[in-house]
Amino acid sequence: MIHRIGVISDTHMPPHKRLPESLWQIFDDVELIIHAGDLSTLAVVAELETIAPVVAVQGNVERDDVVTKLPIKREIKVGGVRIGIVHILGESKYYARTARREFPDARVVVFGHSHVPYNEEYEGVLLFNPGSTNERRRQPTCSVGMLIIDDETMHVQGEIISLE
């Protein structure tokens, strides 16, 4: 079986009023959406759940409702693949080391915070940051991500999708 997982982070709502309309098309056929934090409000989860079930963690700029409801980190399993989820993975030069320490059994570690897309494999672990949905900062565009997991081969592929 092939699993398609939408990945989103740093939606920052508010101050942003809504999610980009293109998300409904991009995530149309996903079975799950992972939100890697900085939702700001739980209303983001409810809105994304109109597309697919959502698994989320809190970020570092959350309202109280998010902090009381969501964990700082979590690990899930999709098919036979373990996915660690956390908002802040630290400095980029230490991503791999921090990921291995936080999620020793994970095949994928999803994170956010930097607003910089990142899709690199290191010693058998895919380190994946979808970038920011609403605040591109120094990036050319805002972005989201897609994880594609093949149960038969246990292959995992990440894709960064620009929102133009």
Rank of each mutant, 00 (worst) to 15 (best):
M1R: 12
H3M: 08
R4A: 11
I8S: 01
I8W: 03
S9D: 02
D10M: 05
T11Q: 05
T11L: 05
P15K: 06
P15S: 09
K17F: 11
K17L: 13
L23D: 00
W24Y: 12
W24G: 04
Q25C: 11
Q25K: 11
F27R: 05
F27V: 05
D28R: 15
D29L: 03
D29M: 04
V30A: 00
V30G: 00
E31P: 03
E31G: 06
I33V: 12
G37S: 09
D38L: 10
D38H: 05
D38V: 10
S40D: 12
T41N: 11
L42N: 02
L42Q: 00
L42H: 01
L42Y: 03
A43W: 01
V44L: 02
V44I: 11
V45Q: 00
E47S: 01
E47C: 01
L48Q: 03
T50Q: 02
T50W: 00
A52N: 08
V54W: 01
V55D: 02
A56Q: 00
Q58N: 08
G59L: 09
E62S: 02
D64N: 15
V66Q: 00
T68H: 06
P71I: 09
P71D: 09
R74V: 10
R74A: 10
G80M: 03
G80F: 06
R82P: 07
I83M: 08
I83S: 06
G84Y: 05
V86N: 03
G90W: 10
R97F: 15
T98D: 04
R100V: 11
F103L: 05
D105E: 15
D105L: 13
A106Y: 02
R107K: 14
S114H: 11
N119V: 08
E120V: 15
E120K: 15
E121G: 09
Y122D: 14
E123I: 13
G124K: 12
V125A: 01
L127I: 07
N129C: 06
P130N: 08
S132V: 04
T133P: 04
N134F: 01
R136E: 08
Q139K: 08
Q139G: 05
Q139L: 09
Q139T: 13
Q139C: 12
P140S: 09
C142H: 04
S143F: 09
V144Y: 07
G145R: 02
L147K: 04
I148L: 13
I149R: 00
D150W: 01
D151C: 07
D151H: 06
E152N: 13
M154E: 08
H155S: 12
V156G: 00
Q157E: 14
Q157K: 15
Q157W: 15
I160D: 02
E164K: 15
